[in-house]
Design a binder for these strands. Structure first.
Lengths: 64, 64
DNA sequence: TATATTTGTAAAGTTTTATTTACATAATGT
DNA sequence: ACATTATGTAAATAAAACTTTACAAATATA
């Protein structure tokens, strides 16, 4: 799964730590998702999509 | 988190097993999600939303 | 250049999601 | 009533998401 987290975060001028705090996870979790080490849980994906006011699938794209 | 899986599945006339096969998980996983024992992964939520041709948040509603 | 901030990463541990096997109960069909 | 199909549930295990601590490297700023 690919994601546009890093770009969205940059557009919103947030550090990984600020974003982590905003969605209640650790900074390392944000970093790991940006680096595509793993996918977020559904709840975290929903929180991120709400924060960035966009659809989950605009941020996270799963092919096939 | 709440979900409308059971209703959607009924509307589409699918058994838990058929739905499980369609989205590549075990029948017990579908049952557990319907019974709200746990939330699906993001990938599974996406697969379900595609199968039922609706948004993730129409199926899964997370409050607050 | 020196300092502070931000990012990348790693290891060990916990929690959550999903699997397999198995069995009991409920519902449907003959 | 009996057999088949569908659902609920449980235990043990595996895999994935996430945490904490910690440190190195990159980037920005004084």
């Amino acid at each position: 799964m690919k994601n546009k987290l890093k770009v969205l975060r940059a557009e919103h001028n947030l550090t990984q730590e600020q974003l982590a705090n905003a969605v209640d996870v650790s900074r390392q979790t944000i970093n790991a998702i940006e680096k595509e080490k793993f996918d977020p849980s559904l709840v975290l994906a929903i929180k991120l999509s709400r924060l960035f006011k966009t659809d989950i699938e605009t941020i996270f794209t799963y092919e096939k």
